[in-house]
């Protein structure tokens, strides 16, 4: 049984249009699954649903999110938070806004260990130091005493990665963790996440719009369009021969940096209307029960 099983998950804006349409996906222990799609396809929404941080304006209409066999959606709020806090972690998108400006770095890494998992303060502090060293931050002791505004964006993303791994979670959701970063540090951060994932054996749900990233980091892949999974496959199969026409078009649209003279290839109109027809057919079938 996979560690994370999402079954027929549908969410929508309260009294509004659906944002996820019966999404199903599995992440096995230690496995890395990429979630790709255009902006608004719902890839971040899945990660947020798993971590229980959907905005209050969005409601889950059906489905199950089984974390280690327990359906999170059936747990009362406090218990759900605790379970997610103990088993999962988030690497957020924007390191500049994801650290609390009025707390020092140290407590932001350690307070989960102390408050939720019952570590002693000394153990947690030692652990924080080790983690910062592992993400290659020089002079960890000084950084632990710093405030976020004293550190660069790349440093802060390293800290957030260290913090995500602090409690040895079974599953980490990485929500476009390199999008907000300078291109020069994107590659380092990606390498760092991949390395940490391999060393710690953590399952990873990797939300990204960058297929290049997927080919480097992920083993399995879900392609989303309008909140629907149009393809669920292994990364090797996907790059060899994508099954769905939309996936193929998406792959073809990936810019090739090795050949700057090649223009950008948009996803063809015909593919878009075909996949939109699929979504419409799905909505009709749901409406007719």
């Amino acid at each position: 049984m996979s560690f994370l099983q999402v079954r027929n998950l549908s969410v929508r804006l309260k009294k509004g249009p659906p944002l996820l349409r019966r999404v199903s996906l599995d992440v096995a222990a230690g496995e890395v699954r990429g979630l790709v799609g255009e902006s608004g396809a719902g890839k971040s929404m899945i990660g947020k649903a798993v971590l229980g941080i959907l905005p209050p304006s969005i409601e889950v209409t059906e489905g199950e999110i089984l974390l280690d066999g327990v359906d999170l959606l059936r747990l009362p709020l406090a218990q759900r938070r605790r379970r997610i806090g103990a088993l999962c972690a988030l690497i957020p998108q924007d390191p500049l806004t994801a650290l609390n400006p009025s707390h020092r770095i140290g407590p932001q890494i350690t307070d989960r260990l102390v408050d939720i998992l019952g570590w002693t303060r000394a153990d947690a502090d030692r652990r924080a130091g080790e983690l910062l060293a592992e993400v290659q931050i020089p002079d960890p002791d000084r950084v632990l005493r710093s405030y976020p505004h004293e550190l660069s964006g790349g440093m802060r993303q390293r800290i957030l990665i260290a913090s995500a791994f602090a409690a040895e979670p079974k599953l980490i959701v990485a929500d476009e963790p390199t999008t907000a970063l300078d291109v020069t540090v994107q590659k380092q951060i990606l390498k760092l996440i991949a390395g940490m994932q391999a060393r710690h054996g953590t399952a990873l749900l990797f939300v990204t719009h960058d297929l290049g990233v997927v080919s480097k980091v992920c083993q399995r892949l879900s392609v989303l369009y309008a909140g629907m999974v149009v393809e669920d496959t292994s990364v090797a199969d996907f790059f060899a021969a994508p099954r769905h026409a939309y996936s193929a078009a998406l792959l073809a649209a990936t810019p090739k940096y090795t050949d700057p003279s090649a223009g950008l290839i948009p996803v063809p109109e015909a593919v878009i209307s075909a996949v939109q027809a699929e979504v419409a057919a799905f909505d009709r079938s749901v409406a007719h029960g």
């Binding site: 605790r82 999962c88 957020p92 998108q93 924007d94 994801a98």
Partner: peptide, 15 residues
């Protein structure tokens, strides 16, 4: 609604 508050929610804290 800020990011660091959302991140804290994923750490298991109550509201």
């Amino acid at each position: 609604n800020l990011d660091y508050v959302t991140l804290a929610r994923t750490k298991g804290y109550g509201e």
